[in-house]
Design a binder for these strands. Structure first.
Lengths: 232, 232
DNA sequence: TTGACACCGAACCGTACGGTACGGTACGCA
DNA sequence: TGCGTACCGTACCGTACGGTTCGGTGTCAA
């Protein structure tokens, strides 16, 4: 278990991490903006705890699970909220959206892209980790004690919207889609894909669609969407 | 402030409340299954606190807000969870769904009923109280510490489904709608109406559609739904 | 070898909260 | 008038948790 350099994080703004020199061997910079290997381990432990116990866990439990001291946790992340926030950010940085076709759009390409997106989205939001994180974010949004809600909102619905709307616009430009308001079209797409799935999962209903069901639901949703907005 | 008879509640199952005799003057039995006037006051105070502070409040805060003693709260509701559960049940008992047309369905009647339902639903879920309750229920569903999630699920999405599906079936029977799977049709309707509104609200986005917007959204959603499933 | 550093593990502190107990008061009833 | 009951307000208790401090250990660089 090699130790790595450990930048002191400003939980709000990850900061350029004023670390001295390049750090020792294992300070790789893959995706977790300025996080050391060890820190990522710790954050993964936090995520695991969130799935298992849903935000009710103590900092001591994190220390136990990650085999590190509370002192280190507080030094790295400031306080419990900073720890949670960092964990959610870390998870968000891991999620990748599917590739969208960049060349000229065909009807089939558009349909495939939309379906792929729907499947990907449903797979994410029905996952244990997403459910746990969304639950925590919702709870925190209620008590206003942190910005977890913002983060999840940004990396959840908003991120989806930012990715989908250009695709819809491209579809319209290519004469494949017809709509007047892109936001409204997105709303329709989101609704047809997600429907009541997410809120039911968050409320504890244990519908867990398997990949086949997700494919079927996505296909139906895209069919409906194209029925509403398809041209030709 | 007149005191009323106070049945000891079994939080799980409200029970027929083994009260002695009819109770004194003010023990009216309007809607809150076996709750005395005073108890309903207390539960309303709890709901107010949930809106204001979102489940983070202490039992002492409830006692303060409702001008009653903690001892009484524990006597009536058992523990903090019982108190919350009773409050959510009490609120659920107050929500009324819109009337649906019972006579022969016309195309206009169906459209009006669907639109009315959509408006009603959006009005409910964008309300402060609904947001607060859903947040609490989601949080509790995560830590498995109570059955709040079930209650909200039953009185939320499931209740909507139970009310809408017969309407859809009636529409199909009257030749106004076409679909093969009622559950799938409901899914579509729910999605088109709610879309990302609820999850965004729960996550702290402060979109608060006013009645005019709700009407507009509902009308568009119903139009789309009828485009997908309308016959003729 | 020595010192600085980063970390672990455990003990510690203050507080907040769930839950209980108790004294005091208003009221119905015999 | 006196008793029982239902309630309020407050004090109290135990515990759990966030956050701090400290002693001890491994590592690296001078």
């Amino acid at each position: 278990m090699t130790r790595a350099a450990h930048p002191i994080l400003t939980p709000e703004r990850p900061a350029a991490a004023a670390r001295g020199a390049g750090g020792s061997a294992a300070a790789s910079e893959v995706a977790g903006e300025g996080l050391s290997e060890r820190q990522r381990e710790v954050l993964d432990a936090v995520l695991k705890l969130m799935v298992a116990e849903g935000d009710g866990f103590s900092v001591a439990a994190v220390a136990r699970a990650a085999s590190c001291s509370k002192e280190t946790l507080y030094k790295w992340f400031g306080d419990r909220d900073g720890l949670l926030t960092a964990a959610v950010r870390w998870q968000a940085s891991k999620v990748r959206m599917p590739k969208l076709p960049s060349d000229r759009l065909t009807r089939e390409g558009l349909e495939a892209a939309l379906t792929g997106f729907a499947e990907s989205w449903l797979t994410v939001i029905t996952g244990d980790l997403s459910i746990a994180l969304n639950r925590a974010a919702v709870a925190h949004a209620g008590s206003g004690r942190s910005r977890l809600g913002d983060i999840v909102l940004t990396n959840g619905p908003f991120a989806m919207k930012r990715r989908i709307e250009p695709l819809l616009e491209a579809g319209r430009a290519a004469g494949l889609l017809g709509f007047t308001d892109a936001a409204d079209a997105f709303r329709g797409f989101f609704g047809l894909v997600v429907a009541d799935t997410q809120i039911r999962l968050l409320l504890g209903d244990d519908i867990r669609p398997d990949p086949a069901e997700i494919q079927a639901i996505s296909a139906r949703a895209v069919t409906k969407f194209l029925l509403l907005h398809g041209q030709g």
